[in-house]
Amino acid sequence: MQYDGAAFLGRVSFISGPGKNSGKTSFMNRAACLARRAARAAGLPPPALLTVGYDGDTRDYLSGARKPSVPVEAGDLFVSAERFLREGGSSPEILDAAPGRSALGRLCVARAHRAGRVALVGPESNAQLDWLLSRIVDEGLSSCALVDGAVNRITQLAGRADALLIYSLRIDRAGLDAALATIKRMALLMDLPLAAEPGSGGGALGRAVDGVASEYPVQEPYLLQGALTAESLALVPDKATELVVEDFTKVFLDYSALTALLRDRSLRVRRRPRFGGYSLITRGLSDGLVLQRLAGLSIRGKPIEEYLGHNPYAEDVKKGALP
């Protein structure tokens, strides 16, 4: 995967990862820098930065003081709560207020008048995130949006035609096997085929079930409304061999459970996002080792290598440049 700023333009990029400290915010900061340049070169407005949680703050390495952690440049849009708006010196202009409230107060869409740092605060409801993305991207306030957020909070991702998913994770020696399972699980999810829509001639969707076992004859494929978990799977009749879920965010099976399911049954999704790839941040092991352990894996017909990006903060020193 190439880190190309132009790839973010005109899109809502959801940067996700397995839990905290998976490198999502670091990746977003780098992606924002690249997108900003690409937008400037294309004569487009700067990017917008959002989160679906609260990005917290970091300590300044010079002073040790707390400071908002996301750098912005003049013209960037961001979403924050009123109480954090004027921190970080970005001299914000309020463009709009989101309906509803968050635990940290009312959210607003702001534009930085100068470079600074901001604390991003995200919406608590999917409806608020929808509203924000629509206001920012669909109404042309920004050339693109970068959303930092955990997979289970980004159901909007599946619903937007312009959505791009980037999966960021940190890998160290001790956690290598778990990380590989996470990558493979994500690869399986991204590789799930699309289900035919009802009436499309490709086979209508079967009767919906809501986690309740049924005595009725099973019609294929079998649409699971809600989450696919070990518990809800146990309630699906054995006869149902073709399952359909709304999108990959509804699948809560780990890699081995998902692999076992796919051995016996097919699983399809009604919507799937464009997959931008993985951003892998290795520590204590080489990028090459990870690649070697993933050899042979493919997503949507392309080898996994094409989806792997490495630490956006890594620098290859050019030979001969050293003094």
């Binding site: 890594a314 001969g320 003094p323």
Partner: peptide, 22 residues
């Protein structure tokens, strides 16, 4: 050093590529 921060606060660089004195 031959390294380009390119707007980044820090970089991860191979030890072999850097001499402490440099």
């Amino acid at each position: 050093l031959g390294i380009n921060f390119d707007g980044r606060d820090f970089l991860i660089v191979a030890r072999a590529a850097l001499e402490p004195e440099a």
